[in-house]
Amino acid sequence: MTNTNMARAQLETGESTIIEFNDVNKWYGDFHVLKNINFSIKKGERIVVCGPSGSGKSTMIRCINRLEEHQKGSILVDGIEMNNNLKNIEAIRKDVGMVFQHFNLFPHLTILENLTLAPIWVRKMPKKEAEEMAMHYLERVKIANQALKYPGQLSGGQQQRVAIARGLCMQPRIMLFDEPTSALDPEMIKEVLDTMVQLAEEGMTMVCVTHEMGFAKTVADRVVFMDAGEIVEANEPHEFFDNPQHDRTQMFLSQILNH
């Protein structure tokens, strides 16, 4: 049985919840940005979060590794509650890779150094081993020949693939993608999506905020639609796209699919 199938099997048995939102609320000042989020993600599941801008989808996934703090409710990642305990936060961050809209590569380090930084300093891996692993992931995102360049010398699509490889270098159990293709030129979106599809096929738990509905249809196990800080609807892609239950979902889909 391949990894993928094992993950599938686990998923179907309905076991091993890896991320759990219990009644999560968050405010920016007076602005209620997340409202009563109740949601759980199983190990190996691929979740696509979509919704209009300002609906709180980025904020929600950024709560998973506590780049944002929630004020009410609880978030459990891998059984560990996210609170102000620094030890917990660091433990979770080791296991959660994140890819940002604007890549956020470190411009003063080479591509290889960007990838080995966390393994060496957080995982305490010997430098040589970290470099070997980094090269392995760079090959996987088809960019190994750029290892000694600086991020500024790469195209946007290449930078984002490096960012994905950097996330993978921590050998995370969960990968978060915060609009990974929104800052890219159209011809570069495909190369990044291809990398993500490949990752999804390997059974990685993925939570991905994106407007790429094609990607959602092909790889998502569930699509979550958020609006005004609430989860309006969450369903399998087939059901979600063909038979949306909510008016707001229908309106959103008609807007993004018929342009």
Binding site: N65, V96, G97, F100, H102, N104, V122
Partner: peptide
Amino acid sequence: IPKGQYEAADAMGLTYWQSMILV
């Protein structure tokens, strides 16, 4: 320094001092 740099360093699990000194 853009906020994204701090966030990327945090998201990797670097400690405060590591992210300051290295990034």
